[in-house]
């Protein structure tokens, strides 16, 4: 693929922006409880009896290790799965109690937000100043791609300008060459 000049470079840039933008938008979408549940990955289940239409989908059970990875220990300031303090143990006990009640992962995280605020979630929210956590890397990538595209097109132009022009052969030598080539034409 050649990147000659502006239009193609900017088309590529727009493509990268669109891909990154859709990735961020997908990340920012609120999750439904069904999406928030954390079922361990495993082999596909054998088909069972058909669910009656309109019946709610069965909820996968939340697990402590999965939730621990996604929330913070607010007192320790580290993810809960790395925290080793009495406060972290109290938070784990709170999560275990909610798991025992059959709450989904999303419901448990919401309960933690009610207790500790949004800061308990390990991922920063995608609005307000915290959106900078997503937007700054995105902007950095866009700027880098733009810079690379600009530099590439500049280097190509410079390279083309610096290439030596092929010297023209004198007329009789050219005729001689034509003749020789015609002789070896198969």
């Amino acid at each position: 693929m050649s990147l000659r000049g502006g239009p193609r470079a900017f088309a590529l840039l727009a493509l990268v922006c669109a891909a990154l933008g859709s990735a961020v938008a997908a990340r920012a979408e609120p999750r439904s409880p069904a999406h928030g549940t954390l079922a361990p990955a495993g082999p596909a289940q054998a088909p069972g009896p058909a669910r009656p239409s309109g019946a709610p989908a069965p909820r996968a059970r939340a697990s402590l290790p999965d939730i621990e990875r996604e929330v913070m220990c607010p007192v320790c300031g580290v993810p809960l799965n790395l925290a080793d303090s009495p406060q972290a143990d109290r938070e784990r006990a709170f999560i275990r109690a909610l798991i025992a009640q059959g709450r989904t992962s999303a419901q448990i995280k919401q309960a933690l937000v009610t207790q500790f605020g949004r800061g308990v979630l390990a991922l920063p929210p995608s609005h307000g100043f915290d959106a900078a956590a997503y937007l700054v890397p995105l902007a950095a990538v866009v700027v880098l791609v733009a810079l690379v595209a600009l530099l590439l097109s500049r280097w190509r132009r410079r390279g083309r300008a610096a290439a030596p022009a092929t010297p023209a052969l004198p007329t009789d030598e050219a005729r001689h060459l034509e003749r020789d080539l015609a002789r070896y034409d198969l």
């Binding site: 900078a132 700054v136 902007a139 950095a140 700027v143 733009a146 810079l147 600009l150 530099l151």
Partner: peptide, 17 residues
């Protein structure tokens, strides 16, 4: 001057954030 200006603006923006 475009590229240095762009880099300077980005650096200033990041610093501001």
């Amino acid at each position: 001057a475009l590229i240095p200006s762009l880099v300077a603006v980005c650096a200033a923006g990041l610093l501001g954030v």
